[in-house]
């Protein structure tokens, strides 16, 4: 309506709303599967990351939480290889965090295709904020 002239549309068979919808759904499913496997591992092994199950499930303990998890690729890889329940839950939760972000990335594709420069910039600012919160702020604190 406002910018019909000169707008390049995506090919008809590429339905961005549908892709976004599938991305969200598979993200949630993948995340929940990892979380459930993590919980099962904790109960089967009776421990996670060297803490016994009573410590793991004690939510008054302010020392055993997300801070003890090593988020490096090698740390996560080792955790998963050792079938550490904490690391399965960690992967599940981070898949969940990245799921809505992937839709912003998808919207960038649409804005590029539509040559919508204003919204392209705005979407990039949103991504910048997200990664600022993830990568920069933890190093400042």
């Amino acid at each position: 309506m406002l910018r019909t002239r000169g707008v390049r549309r995506l090919p008809r068979d590429v339905n961005i709303d549908r892709i976004a919808s599938y991305t969200l759904r598979s993200g949630v499913l993948l995340s929940v599967s990892f979380i459930i496997v993590g919980i099962i591992l904790i109960f089967v092994k009776g421990e996670a990351s060297g803490y016994n199950i009573s410590q793991v499930s004690d939510f008054h303990n302010m020392a055993i939480n997300s801070k003890i998890i090593s988020l490096s690729f090698s740390g996560i890889g080792a955790g998963l290889a050792h079938l550490d329940g904490f690391y399965f839950i960690t992967v599940g939760l981070w898949v969940l965090i990245f799921t809505p972000i992937s839709v912003v990335v998808l919207s960038i594709v649409t804005f590029v295709a539509e040559e919508n420069r204003l919204y392209l910039i705005m979407a990039i600012i949103v991504l910048f904020n997200l990664f600022f919160a993830m990568l920069v702020i933890p190093r400042l604190m």
């Binding site: 993590g38 793991v56 939510f59 949103v126």
Partner: peptide, 30 residues
């Protein structure tokens, strides 16, 4: 749609500060 992205931003800061108890968060999310 926006709530997810807003919460994702806050979650990462919560994560590094150790506000996420994995056992509790897993149960609550499910």
């Amino acid at each position: 749609f926006m709530i997810g992205i807003t919460a994702a931003t806050g979650s990462s800061i919560y994560w590094y500060e150790g506000y996420i108890q994995l056992f509790l968060a897993a149960a609550a999310a499910i």
